[in-house]
Structure formats: C-alpha cells, structure tokens
Amino acid sequence: MTDTAPALLVGVDFGEPHFDGELQELGLLAETAGMRPVARLTCKRRAPDAALFVGSGKADEIKFMAQQHGATEVLFDQSLSPAQQRNLERHIGLPVNDRTLIILEIFGQRARSHEGKLQVELARLQYLSTRLVRRWSHLERQRGGIGTRGGPGETQIELDRRMISDAIKRTKERLQKLKKQRQTQRKQRHRRNAFTVSLVGYTNAGKSTLFNALVKARAYVADQLFATLDTTTRQLYLGDSARSVSLSDTVGFIRDLPHGLIDAFEATLQEAADADLLLHVVDASNIDFPEQMAEVQRVLCEIGASDVPQILIFNKLDAVPSERRPVTLKDQYDEGGIIMDRLFVSAQTGEGLAQLRQLLSTKATILNPLIDQDDLKSDEFTAQLPNAAD
C-alpha cells in the first residue's frame, strides 16, 4: 500500500449485529494507514461467495465504481481468503486488501520497541504464509540435482513457504526470550507485593491520555486508531492509602482483531492477564460503546483475563453532549450480569481524576491489603511523591 493512495471501501452485511453500515471504522483505519477513502460501497449477502466473496455482479460494480472515483486500491471491511483476494484482484484489475492487512500495516507503522517490532513481524509472516497460493508469476518449478540432471526439485512456492516458516520459527524464539524477561519482571513485582493495574479498552478510547494524566508521563497520544502499541509501565502514588501502584498502558483492542495479532502480542497482553485490577477505558462519547465494550471483554476472555477485577472508566466526558451527561460521576454498571463500579472522567480536562485516585486507593486496599513498608521508602516509590497532587 502506498501513502495517501485513493481507496474504495467495501463492506458486506451478512446479518451480523455489529455491521458498520457507514464504514466509519474502516475509513479511520484506512486514514491511519496513510490511505485516502474516495468512495464507500456496501451490500447484503446471506453468505460469502466462495470465489469472489461478493459475487461476480457486485465485483463488476466495484470495478466500475473504482474507475469512476480514481481509486487505486480496494479495501474490504472483512477478512478475505487468499483465493478470494487473488480472484478479486484479477477481476477488478486493482490491488485488493482486507481488514486484517490494514491493521497489520498500522501495527507495522506504530511499533517502536524491539519487542513490538518482533510481534508485528511475526503476525505479518503468519498472514503472508496463508497468501502463498500461486499469486505471483515466479512460482514455477525449479530443477533439482546437479547440473541439468536430477528429478523435479522444489517449486518456488515451496521454497517461499519454507523460508517464511524458518523466519516464523526464529521470530518466535526471539519473542520467547523477551517473554521470559517480562515474566522475571512480573515476578519481581509480585515479590515486593506491588499492586498492578492495567489500562485496557477499545482503540482510541483515550487510554494513553488517561495514563499521562495519572502518572505525568509523556506516552504518545494522537486522535487516531492504535496510536500506542508498546506497553508502558509507571508507578502511581496514591496519597489516600499512602502507597504506590504499578500502572501499565496496553495496546487497544478493535473489532475483528486478527487472531495472529492476539497470538503475536501475547507477551504484551499478558500484562493485563497478570494484573490485580483492570481499568476498562470506554469512550463515553461514542454511541456504539456497548459493542466496543463487548469486543474488549471477548479479547480479555481469549487472553485469560476475564476473571481480573475491573473498574469501568467512561472517558471523554468533555465530549459527551449535555443531554447525555450523567447525573453523578460514580455509579454501577451491569456488564453481562456482572455489576461493576463505573466512573465518568475526562482525561483531557481532569474532571473525575481525583475520584479515580480515591477509588484506586480503596480497591488496592481491599484487593491487596498487605504491602511491604520498605517498598514505600525505596527510591522507585518515593520518586513519585511530587506527582501526588492533582
């Protein structure tokens, strides 16, 4: 994909409840990846067409619409099989990509740490390994043996697949070493009885802005999807309980997050699974927040973090219309039959942050009442004391 490439967005409604009829999220993903949506097309089907996903008639319409608007790429809101992608490209005459690839593209642009780059590379290799379906012209059979003698050798596609398989194996081994390092760090926190809190939530819910507001950090913040990929951990001093907690900002979730990315980011997402408390950050200004919350809960369940206690933080209160503003900042919310504490805040203006610190102090005292007083006197903890004030 090239920068600012004009793209035609396509979405197919198969009757799923979360279908985005306006393709707003796909448009944000495309813009975040450096593409420029020039037109949108949606249609309904009972099931995907095995060959062209949308059928030949709709494929013709996509081709005509792309020509009419000068699009140089076609982007689908759903995942395409390798054969469907290949067939569509031949039928339309343009590069065709799916939601999975656009997310991989964004992750590749956003990764900054060594671990983050390795995780993205693993996901990219795993995705590429499924695309080896004779899509390129050089996949002819190579001759084996010495000189011109010998039987048929490996096909180029077999060579490519073996090279990718070897690269996946090497990347996994390097990630495994980093995973062990993270496990050692987590064990050290447990030994000193540190209370760990992880920020989780849908992408662009304002997690990094809230993280910066709480710990006076300078994590990268932008009004775009997946602005932050690498986990950042800082100490947060809570004056009400005279203790510090370890606060981590994690990667945001999104609908239909590719399983390859979930697997690749296992080490990063493990921060949430091993936390004592999760701050589930929700964009209160987004009317689709229930669906976004459900998606976050699904991923948390997938990584083994569904049993970790949660506080719902409804962020961006400053962007909520006056008619929808809550009567009180703190109440309770029924999430799938589980009653959770909910707090409305604005990380941008600071509204509700004092109440959040108080709630964190209460939860930390209840969930982890024992704390080594020597830890409170250590440089790591006392260094945060000047940041205690709002």
Rank of each mutant, 00 (worst) to 15 (best):
H259G: 15
V282I: 15
C301M: 04
T250P: 06
N315T: 06
A284N: 00
D263M: 05
L229I: 04
Q310Y: 03
Q310F: 00
I303A: 05
A273I: 05
R298F: 11
V282Y: 12
H259I: 09
D274K: 10
I311D: 02
A273M: 05
R234W: 11
A272Q: 04
Q310E: 12
E302F: 06
T232M: 10
Y237A: 10
H280R: 05
S241F: 01
F314L: 15
A275L: 04
K316V: 00
V296K: 05
R255V: 05
A273C: 09
L269R: 06
V281I: 12
P309S: 10
A284E: 07
L247W: 01
I287P: 09
T250H: 05
I313R: 01
P290V: 03
T250C: 12
L261F: 05
V308K: 08
Q292N: 13
G252E: 03
F289C: 10
A294I: 02
Q297I: 06
S285A: 15
V282F: 11
S306R: 09
L261G: 00
L300Q: 03
V308W: 06
H280Q: 14
F314N: 08
H280G: 07
Q235T: 13
C301V: 03
R255E: 14
F253A: 02
I254R: 01
L236R: 01
C301K: 12
E295P: 03
L238T: 01
L247Y: 02
T268Q: 13
A305W: 08
P258K: 05
S244R: 07
S244N: 10
D230G: 04
L261C: 07
P290C: 07
S246I: 15
G239E: 14
P258Y: 03
L261P: 04
L312M: 15
L300Y: 04
H259A: 13
S306F: 03
C301G: 13
R298W: 07
G252A: 08
E291F: 07
V308F: 07
T231H: 04
R255S: 15
V245N: 03
D283T: 10
A242W: 00
T250Q: 07
L279H: 01
V245F: 11
I287T: 14
I311L: 14
A272N: 00
P309M: 11
I311M: 14
L300I: 09
